[in-house]
């Protein structure tokens, strides 16, 4: 599998990272180099092997479905680049 500039552009878009048109060929090259390295995994016989979901055999713990935290509006908004009237502010999303 190899990545062309169109695919590189699509990946950048999916990752929400702006990559100028002119830099897409270089990006495609770099991604191809890394993917070629990963191709080695095709040599391994993984027939019947379970994909790992947890490195230590443990069940995730459950807890009571109760409020344990909250009422921290000021702290939550403290680091926002743009917070107004108790909300995060973003550019207009809906016309």
């Amino acid at each position: 599998m190899s990545i062309d500039t169109k695919t590189a552009g699509r990946v950048a878009k999916l990752a929400r990272i702006a990559v100028p048109e002119g830099e897409l060929p270089k990006l495609a090259d770099e991604l191809n180099g890394i993917l070629a390295f990963m191709e080695q995994l095709n040599e391994v016989d993984v027939e019947g092997v379970e994909p790992m979901t947890s490195v230590t055999p443990q069940r995730l713990k459950r807890r009571e479905d109760v409020v344990t935290d909250g009422n921290q509006q000021e702290a939550v908004l403290k680091n926002a680049p743009d917070a107004r009237e108790g909300f995060f502010a973003v550019p207009k999303v809906v016309e």
Binding site: I3, V11, L31, L35
Partner: peptide, 28 residues
């Protein structure tokens, strides 16, 4: 670079070929 590689190996059509295979190799 790593965010984009990650995006690619998780994207539809490649998830099994890369991500699931890697998790199986991790088991081994």
């Amino acid at each position: 670079r790593r965010v984009m590689i990650g995006t690619y190996v998780l994207s539809a059509g490649f998830y099994d070929a890369y991500y699931n295979r890697a998790r199986k190799v991790r088991t081994l």
